[in-house]
């Protein structure tokens, strides 16, 4: 049977569906019996789903900075 440390070390592979069927089964058996590991996997999954929303598209000022940089470069090279 897997230890809790092994489950935690494989949790992101489980979430990203990178485990073999046998490994998945071993994880599921452990998770059925261990509430701490269930909590870890559930919370890690939620965290990984939330993180992408930290950054979205560039702001207007960032776009303006880049476009001004390009325009100044182009006017210099003319």
């Amino acid at each position: 049977m897997l230890t809790c440390r092994e489950v935690v070390n494989s949790a992101d592979h489980l979430i990203e569906r990178e485990l073999s069927r046998r490994q998945q089964l071993a994880m599921k058996v452990h998770l059925l019996m261990c509430r701490h590991c269930r909590r870890y996997v559930r919370q890690l999954r939620a965290l990984l789903q939330a993180i992408p929303f930290m950054h979205s598209k560039a702001s207007d000022s960032e776009v303006r900075d880049v476009m001004e940089h390009i325009q100044s470069h182009q006017s210099e090279s003319r």
Binding site: H55, S56, K57, A58, E62, V63, V66, M67, I70
Partner: peptide, 10 residues
Amino acid sequence: FSQAVRCYTP
């Protein structure tokens, strides 16, 4: 180009 800058700069 502005659209690409907005989408891909991050």
